[in-house]
Design a protein around this nucleic acid. Sequence first.
DNA 1: AAAATAGTGTCTTTCAGACAGTATTAA
DNA 2: TTAATACTGTCTGAAAGACACTATTTT
Lengths: 271, 271
Amino acid sequence: MAGTDSDSEAEFLARYDPREFDPAAVTVDVVALTIRDDALHVLLVQRGEPPYAGQWALPGGFVRAGGHRGPAEDLPDAAIRKLSEEAGQHLGQIHLEQLGTYGTPGRDPRMRVITVAYLAFAPELPEPLAGINAQAAAWTPLPLLKLAHATGAQQPGTTRKLAFDHAQIIADGLERARSKLEYTPLATAFVTEPFTISELRAVYETVWGEPLHAGNFHRKVLSVPGFVESTGQTTQTGGPRGGPRARLYRRGDARLLHPALLRPGREDEVR
Amino acid sequence: MAGTDSDSEAEFLARYDPREFDPAAVTVDVVALTIRDDALHVLLVQRGEPPYAGQWALPGGFVRAGGHRGPAEDLPDAAIRKLSEEAGQHLGQIHLEQLGTYGTPGRDPRMRVITVAYLAFAPELPEPLAGINAQAAAWTPLPLLKLAHATGAQQPGTTRKLAFDHAQIIADGLERARSKLEYTPLATAFVTEPFTISELRAVYETVWGEPLHAGNFHRKVLSVPGFVESTGQTTQTGGPRGGPRARLYRRGDARLLHPALLRPGREDEVR
DNA sequence: AAAATAGTGTCTTTCAGACAGTATTAA
DNA sequence: TTAATACTGTCTGAAAGACACTATTTT
């Protein structure tokens, strides 16, 4: 805007009514999911100021739009920057995808804010002890959160209420993650290479929230072309409570799982 | 902003650096799809001013953000408003869903614009002869457009190049539509009630761009619970080139198709 | 009569899921 | 020795897809 002002702006607005133009604040928020201790966790930061002071919120912030304050920043870059700041380390290689955009008037009590939400998946990361910012950031188990559609077992009384509409955003991200496990190799983004079939199964069980049949899962994963690729190696020891050494795999080259691994027993949720 | 100024704004920005805030222009663009003459069509408007003067673009425009220029407007409402203006009639009941947000710096040559794209599906609508705005609007067959991933048969030389990144947005919308035909009853949004199984099959064949086996399709649709619901009626005549009268159906109550109708022969596109 | 279309029957192959069973390892 | 786990074998039922076939309607 500054410099190239009303003239070229009016040109741009030619097919609209220029008087309809209001600037809005554009932010990115990131739903970063990981698995710790067999539970799905999301990265949250604690707010220090009102509104929602003391409550937890998604990491996020303003997109550098490219006004007089510096170069313009692409939306995914802004998401990675915000996430990296709060996670305490640079996460350039993380799996990131756009989740959706939330712009209902009043979702922020003070001004019109349009938030582009991103969804990130990572293998277990260290607790963000010393973030760039002063405020607390922490990986938080999803069962502790008050989400729109209950994730399953929640301890009442200990649930944390989230700022803004972030509970809805997390619920949407969770449903996206559950769905993408079915037809993409997304589960491999939650483990470090090399991994075992059991580790992969633990990802599915944790995200879907239900146990899977170990034998059938094993055969199924190996039967999907390009899902995983053998390393020829095995673990050095058996499991902590017994069992043989497991073969190790790395990610395959498939971008879609065919046939898909469908969630069991969803006939009810169809109407 | 106006009224509640720097103080509360600084409060809001507590967990960010307030100096990072740049306002951006937020617009909505709508990919409205319909089927006319057995071809998928998208609603386009012709630009009158540079940049991209004379080229075709998606209907869209600024979101009323709720500054000093009037009440704030929700994003889907803005999409319906823009679409209705260009289509020449109010489309309050149309199937509408968010497609994605496009904000790469430079996608508009003059200023930073963040566009929230919506995807709409409609049964055949009249040609928008007299829109609210002066500029031309028209239902345009998709094969006439230069899209990122070629839709199939295009007549070279007659293709229309689209303004901004709208070719990419349409390509993304098309892929979304193709995919959603598989596991949702979306196809019924393209036909008017009551409809025949053949009309439904024509939707799938048009959107997927390949012929389906009539007999197997018929049985499959009727076997999916809640996809369609019989009216007990039949058409008054047979088809234009012969054949018996067809039974008529309306939309069922399913929101997901189980089992899904998968696109044939996609093993190749998996890597 | 011929051609097109609606709708059904049947067969084969694939796949999901239940279940059983063997081999290997830790406690 | 016991329990846990990795992995494989086998059976059943569901479903996709190929193909054939009948019935109905228009030209």
